[in-house]
Design a protein around this nucleic acid. Structure first.
Lengths: 336, 336
DNA sequence: AGAGGATGTCGAAGCGCTTCGACAGCTTTC
DNA sequence: GAAAGCTGTCGAAGCGCTTCGACATCCTCT
């Protein structure tokens, strides 16, 4: 293993000079710099991460805490994780993958051991038990998701309230009056995951303003659960012509069931989905949807965190504006 | 930040004693150990990761390299990643998430900097460009997937050849003679991803033994691509009654199309899928399938790697035996 | 009783890096 | 032309831990 000292000797300079070439924290003459850089290349030198962390008390590592559960939004999580990892690299950071399993202790362990310089938490619940710890250890951190109390925290998320509003607006504009909302699994609401509630809030408040009739039903996803949910909805509100779906694994079953019942999409019924772009495009009917900007969220989170670590910028809540893309699943409401 | 020295002072012992309590590498009297452990708890001590890594040249970190591409098997990847992370924790390791973006350089960087003690590579291609590096730096590593040349490497994977064989056997047993194989996207084959080719190998060789007629077609997945692929298949082999599908995003479109054409599953046509359990269960027809044991693969990979790092065990290729679960999508071939 | 072996603890060296202060050799300034 | 200021480089200290050899003690054999 090549060390700084060996590089220094090879280049005929002192160790500190090599260090300054690497960090750029002091000015170095052009000739010296080039000599050192050449030695580094020739010897194939890579600074030892541990030594660096010890001496500088900076590990250049960001911890990413993903939920253990794999019951929802897996592709979104993955996309975020990958975006976090690649964005982090462009800022010189690596990413440590923590699962929710360890629970809040992970926060303590990571901040106590100096393993990571900061953390990004995904799947934040409204009243997340990791937050008190985060505040008390004042770990630089960024949340993906929005807890109930955001004071002193930096958060990044899609503006789900606006998303909900956007969906009903679109359907209202097309003339739909009776709208059913197929939501996430009941467990998601029980857990008080913020995004589900905020979406609902947006749907309802804008729906009320527009004078729509809204019916919200959580749904486990999958074909069977969707069948039950759908028939209940149609029993209760036979005039339903618009659907807003916020549950990836309910989308395709819903389309299949509607088709099966002879309800044509979008002629008889319009469907708007809140889901990743890929799902919307690959569905059996190309879906009018509000995309979940997973990459953006990951990127923003890293950038906020890096800014914090650099002493720039403070606590901020970044809500990304939703964008609705009209595709083949929504159209004018049928004449009464 | 609490240091070892502070703990030592608080407990009235030397620093080395505390270190030995922590590592268990020398015997310590019960009373001393308890005193030290108490101090650790009271002060909330966490060993500094950097210092530890520097002194011991062990970081207790495993690097996990996931593919950048998110075009296939995303939930599987995620499940593996999570299994890797949680299993690693039970062995005292953390996981560093590397994306394919950096390419082979990541191997150099990680092994050069001592950032990680070993690595796990996912999505290994038959002739993967990371392998020479792995061999030359002799990084302890485990591959998930099987390259062409496995000498000197430890690999973990599903036995895809046996998986292919199992699928055709099942269909043959039910009396199907004309079988179509819906494969991964053409790009996957072009990239020479081992698992796709091995599956095909298993399908073909067992199919030949059983005297079946096999037709293999790659497919992009999604509704439209599947529609084209299916109609081509049925043009060419109208008597096809069995389908083997190895492409998550083709499964549901296939079922929808068959339904639409009035071909009942499993009465007229049987479908066997190679996919994660969840997909099989949630499909509109519960699918007879060979599950991709993502968790198992992640767990095995970590265990192999940890064994290597502990100096136990050597190079080995672990192929997990496939298991076919019969569900509602396969049945006896229709009478001619 | 004294040699020899366990057992438990300590001191010190050193892992590879960053960073601070020092300083030699310049150039600028009045 | 001496004082003052830059620039570029170096030496040394120290980050917090592990680990090696040394050394008391206390047992256990003959």
């Amino acid at each position: 293993m090549v060390t700084l000292a060996e590089v220094a000797q090879h280049a005929g300079v002192s160790a500190s000079t090599v260090s300054y070439v690497l960090s750029g924290k002091r000015s170095i003459s052009v000739t010296t710099r080039q000599r050192v850089e050449r030695s580094i290349r020739e010897l194939g030198y890579h600074p030892n991460a541990g030594a660096r962390a010890l001496a500088s008390s900076r590990s250049n590592i960001i911890a990413l805490m993903v939920p253990l559960r794999t019951d929802m939004y897996v592709p979104v999580m993955m996309e975020i994780a990958i975006a976090v990892a690649t964005t982090a690299r462009t800022h010189g950071y690596d990413v440590l993958l923590l699962t929710g399993e360890e629970g809040p202790d992970a926060v303590r362990r990571v901040s106590g051991s100096g393993l990571a310089d900061g953390m990004i938490l995904m799947d934040v619940e409204l009243d997340d038990e990791r937050l008190p710890l985060l505040r008390e250890t004042d770990q630089p951190a960024v949340l993906i998701g929005l807890p109930a109390d955001t004071t002193g925290l930096t958060c990044v998320d899609l503006d789900f309230k606006a998303t909900g509003a956007l969906c009903v607006e679109h359907l209202a504009t097309l003339g739909h009056r009776d709208i059913a909302v197929i939501g996430e699994a009941p467990a998601v609401y029980e857990r008080h995951t913020g995004f589900a509630e905020r979406t609902l809030d947006g749907l309802r408040s804008r729906g009320r303003e527009l004078g729509l009739r809204l019916l919200h039903r959580p749904c486990e996803g999958g074909y069977d659960a969707m069948a039950v949910t759908l028939s209940r909805i149609l029993d209760e509100r036979p005039g339903t012509t618009g659907f807003v779906v916020q549950n990836e694994s309910a989308v395709e079953p819903l389309l299949a069931l509607l088709r099966q019942q002879g309800r044509a999409v979008p002629e008889d019924v319009s469907v708007v989905s809140i889901c990743p772009e890929q799902v919307a495009v690959q569905a059996s009917v190309r879906l009018t949807s509000v995309a979940i900007p997973a990459q953006e969220m990951g990127r923003h989170a890293v950038e906020q965190l890096v800014a914090k670590l650099d002493g720039r910028g403070g606590d901020e809540v970044v809500l990304l504006a939703p964008e609705l893309t009209v595709r083949a699943s929504s159209g004018p409401a049928p004449a009464q």
